[in-house]
Design a protein around this nucleic acid. Sequence first.
DNA 1: CCTAAACATTTTAGACTTAAAACAATTGGA
DNA 2: TCCAATTGTTTTAAGTCTAAAATGTTTAGG
Lengths: 164, 164
Amino acid sequence: MTLDSETKAVELPEDHADELRLWLRLLTCTTLIEGEIRGRLRERFDVTLPRFDLMAQLDKAPDGMTLSDVSKRMMVSNGNVTGLVERLVESGHLDRRTSDTDRRVQVIRLTKLGRAEFRKMAAEHETWIADIFGELTEKDVRELMRLLAKTKGSAQKAVQRRQD
Amino acid sequence: MTLDSETKAVELPEDHADELRLWLRLLTCTTLIEGEIRGRLRERFDVTLPRFDLMAQLDKAPDGMTLSDVSKRMMVSNGNVTGLVERLVESGHLDRRTSDTDRRVQVIRLTKLGRAEFRKMAAEHETWIADIFGELTEKDVRELMRLLAKTKGSAQKAVQRRQD
DNA sequence: CCTAAACATTTTAGACTTAAAACAATTGGA
DNA sequence: TCCAATTGTTTTAAGTCTAAAATGTTTAGG
């Protein structure tokens, strides 16, 4: 508290250094972990992270997904998905067909090969994550989940505000 | 606690679903915020996020940095920095010179123009971050900082272990 | 029915990114 | 001194990514 709390109401050049540091730390953590996962995926399975992520989305959707769905879920651009899918169809991991009811829509799903390979990778991937977060207690994990959920909500509202 | 705590010592297929969810949430938060910042930088200043990040590093180093320093700080590959710097020198934001004492080393620093433009962007950038994290209390911020520091430490050790 | 708007995807152009190889310069022993 | 590792940077090849424009399809309102 300052002595003159009246000034708090006025639009002063506020200090947001803490939030800035928080953002940088969040970014550092993610970049560090992402790089580690990327490296292990390449080393162990010769697969890229985006390919793995796309397959992870499809593994959760046995009936397939449209490209738009994938794009929204992965939070990447449409054009990006087009290219990724192209390469995964080429390598035999994905099956792609035009929807029967709407000829604009492409439905993609994992092939047998794709699913089998993904499951193998996913099992190991999970142990890597456990290793990486190994020093956190159960309570730490719960608390982080809670705070990140709050952060996500706060950020989504900021996005919303800008789009108005 | 399970009834038979003896089994804890054995190597059982453990469940790491919580850590996995935590990782996905961390990634979602970062991607969401990164996308928002990227969009605002483009819209408001017609600049890309990597360019902004590089300039931010240099703003903190009035005497300049070597390309390796930048690469380590930004946690990106050497080749990546080479290209980024090329474009920023081209646009007049960066000055690049070979070190007097070691002809392998390139020292880069912000030009007057670069520094002026960065300062303008940074001021607004800080308000965006404040907006995005706006719903977090001071305590939330402190707690997140602490938990992310712990996460970073844990991840770094995992990276270290793999490199042995 | 027609057609303007909305929607799903692809294309385009350019930038970013990585890993690995190549190149250049320095350094630390033998 | 010499030269084998090390270090700093660039190059290469391939992939990832975005924003915006273009293409093709569906849908609704008149």
